[in-house]
Write a protein that binds this DNA or RNA. Sequence first.
RNA 1: GGGCCUGUAGCUCAAUCGGUCAGAGCACCCGGCUCAUAACCGGGCUGUUGCUGGUUCGAACCCAGCCGGGCCUACCA
Length: 681
Amino acid sequence: MTRRILVTSALPYANGHLHIGHLVEYLQTDIWVRFQKMRGERCIYVCADDTHGTSIMIRARQEGRSEQELIDDMSRAHQQDFAEFGIEFDNFGSTNSESNRKLCGEVWSALRQAGLVEERSVTQLFDAKEGVFLADRFVVGTCPKCESKEQYGDHCEKCLSTYSPMDLKDPVSTLSGTKPEVRSAPHLFVKIESLHSFLDEWTSTGDHLQPEMANYLKGHFLSDELRDWDISRPAPYFGFEIPDAPGNYWYVWFDAPIGYVASTQDWCDAQGEKLDDWWRSEDTEIFHFIGKDILYFHALFWPSMLKTAGFSLPRRVQVHGFLTVDGEKMSKSRGTFIMARTYLDHLDPAYLRYYYASRLGPKVVDIDLDLEDFQNKINSDLVGKVVNIASRSAKFVQRGHLSETYPDDGGLFQAGAEAGNEIAKAYDDCDYAKAMRLVMGLADRANGYVDEKKPWTLKKDPEKAGEVRDMCSVALNLYRQIVVYLTPVLPELSNDSANLLGASFDAWQDAGTPLVGTAVNEFKHLMKRVDPKKVQAILENSKTAAEDVADHQAVGKPTEDDGGPLEAEPLAAECTIDDFTKVDLRVARVVSAEHVPKANKLLQLRVSLGGGVERTVFAGIKKAYEPEALVGRLVVVVANLRAREMKFGTSEGMVTAAGPGGAEVFLLSPDSGAKPGQRVH
RNA sequence: GGGCCUGUAGCUCAAUCGGUCAGAGCACCCGGCUCAUAACCGGGCUGUUGCUGGUUCGAACCCAGCCGGGCCUACCA
């Protein structure tokens, strides 16, 4: 029986462009959807831009244009990137749509009727100049516990304590640089505790979640009373105004998942389908693909909302890990913060599709893009093995025909057809790595076959032309079988190969029956080897592109340094040259650097000032730098700073760096030629 | 501090719910071949399956402890 399946990926936020980390999810989903469609299932893939929230409002304001313009531009850019990566949605909508507003209203009414909504006053910091309430990340001040300066609204990165933004000393809004005031406003809360037992049940049964995720929820949230969910935001806010609470807006995380339904609605309207067949039907399976960071919303709030509003619950929420590049978090300074666009400018999307597929399994683990491995894998698997089968056999029969009956191949084709079941199961289980392994095994056997038959020898004997043709018919059929199995991952290769053989490659069952008698067209290269120079170029371009594009800057605007940093940290009071010279800044060389056990942010550095003078310095740069990358480089240290006792030892100085903290830390270094021990004047 | 995950050949990973495997691919070495995008075929190489104990007739797979790595949390997620 044909399954009916509705698939979603998380909605990309309209605040920034896509990078290769985002693509893990969209490619994972796209491959799965293509697979289901090939199998003949009724499957649609819907998504949308996530457009609401304070961040969008503020960014639009900074860019001096309307939110609508901003999100329209971003939506176009997102869809362009998706299309070029071969990610095919049946519908790509927007959360800022009428269909979404209407559906939000429906869900809302249901929540109201169920008696789950409650009003309560919330006290928050308010930026009077900008006229907005400030989320924690928009406030900095002095930590009330340890007096560290420039800490964010809700926690101190120095002493690790947490607190309310209201307790912050000398708070400053990062938006306007002014001192925020304390204001209260009514907020609406959803009491989801009443759905606790439902959520216990739903999360732990029915294979709705990967076991580790179910386990995580059980230990973290479901073990206690569920806190009420603050679901409204007072004006000004970019979003939908709540009909029965004028002046208040639905929090972006309320309307975002409803965007899945709205996007489906838009698709239904265009196709003449009924929404209820997809969202209120026992016969439809709903699959959400998400990253591990948003599990909370999809596995607790979302099912609660759906249940209350009478929609179907997801059949499964499939969670994936994050992407690292060369074993580390994507980093702008290393050039590994690669935007989708930058990749597309240099390399074939098929490479990344295959590489991700070869590393994606069903478990929630981070996957690594190892650039050397990437090149090896593409070159040897796709070019050396798969495409090679066609490359080495098609030429013997091109502009001719395949044999009229399928020759004896010693059971190779049949074995490949049987392997299809196992491969299909691997796809269906989201274990693409396994599927790729199995397919490559088939490719190895096909190459072995060609080698054994030696068409280049047979060819020399005119009487053996029939044998050559039979042998190539086998090889090309094995090739076709393999490419059919790879079609979800490599649709373009599949198309090109179909042209070569003048046959369909887009149904899974095509792998079960050999082609006979069809014409073979002229052979053209189906895929190129990876050019290492292009990979280097991506890294180079990403170093600069990341600064221009990835930051909350410029949608198609020229680079312009924004005022954010200066506003976040206004200039200090005037000082004299004498004040300045009290601080002795010196060039130093890092001689060793290592992780500090149990420290979240610190690295322990040993720096040399030359002449055998060394200092031990603890620096809060762990999230931004790997120790190995630091050894040998020159830095600038405050050399006459009083030694400070820290939890992990004594720090005899300070390494200078810029940036707000966390992963956004940028060490200062002198231009080449400077020597350790030299003073900075 | 709490929680989750993880530690298998140089690298990336496999080993059906403890009973032939200690394996595959890449890399490397040797040989072969020349149809193919320096591709392909054959062969070889490295492992005390993190360490230490325990359970068992038997453990890479179970339990405990230790060491190492990663991730998530720490009261409006």
